[in-house]
Amino acid sequence: MPHFERLYNFACWLTHDRQEAEDLVQETYVKALKGFSSFQKGTNFRAWIYKILRNAFLTSRTGLKVTSTVQLDLEGEEETLPAAEETPESILLQRSDGWLVQQALEQLPVAYREVLLLCEVEEMSYQEISATLAIPIGTVMSRLSRARKALRGGLQQQFAERVN
């Protein structure tokens, strides 16, 4: 079963529910087997199967709820991140507090969470992410930038809460 563990991990991050993630992974493989004729030779198999999983998620009850309540993308002017010499999140990261990063990731809107996971955890290229999420590469870049900014914001908030 190609990519089984990674698809499951990604599904858990999307759904926040292990049972739902199992259903999603199962649905993905069933759909992949049925729709293998739609896979074009020479294209990226990983992006194809992740796309199936993501589409299955978007049409699931949780997916529909998430996408109807969260505005998926707010495209606009890019904002340059400030220099990060000794910032709260760099202090947190130095302390290697994986739990805090997990919390901050969990709290991100799903559109930000998925793009960050595909880039950092799955180590997909922008091209692969673009194929998986069916968005242009420019949108991949701007969404990644916003996702990173939002994650830093979340870490800063957690840092402030810890200090107070």
């Binding site: 089984f4 563990e5 499951y8 991990n9 858990c12 991050w13 292990r18 993630a21 199992e22 992974v25 220099a83 990060a84 010499e85 910032t87 999140e89 760099s90 990261l93 130095q94 290697s96 994986g98 739990w99 990063v101 997990q102 990731l105 960050l116 996971l117 950092e120 955890v121 180590e123 990173r148 994650l151 830093r152």
Partner: peptide, 23 residues
């Protein structure tokens, strides 16, 4: 270079934190 280092740390932290669930 300081900024790059912080961002590399961030990337690695996300990678480690993101590999969380095992079937």
């Amino acid at each position: 270079s300081g900024d790059a280092l912080t961002r590399v740390q961030m990337k690695r932290s996300i990678q480690a934190a993101g590999r969380r669930y095992t079937p």
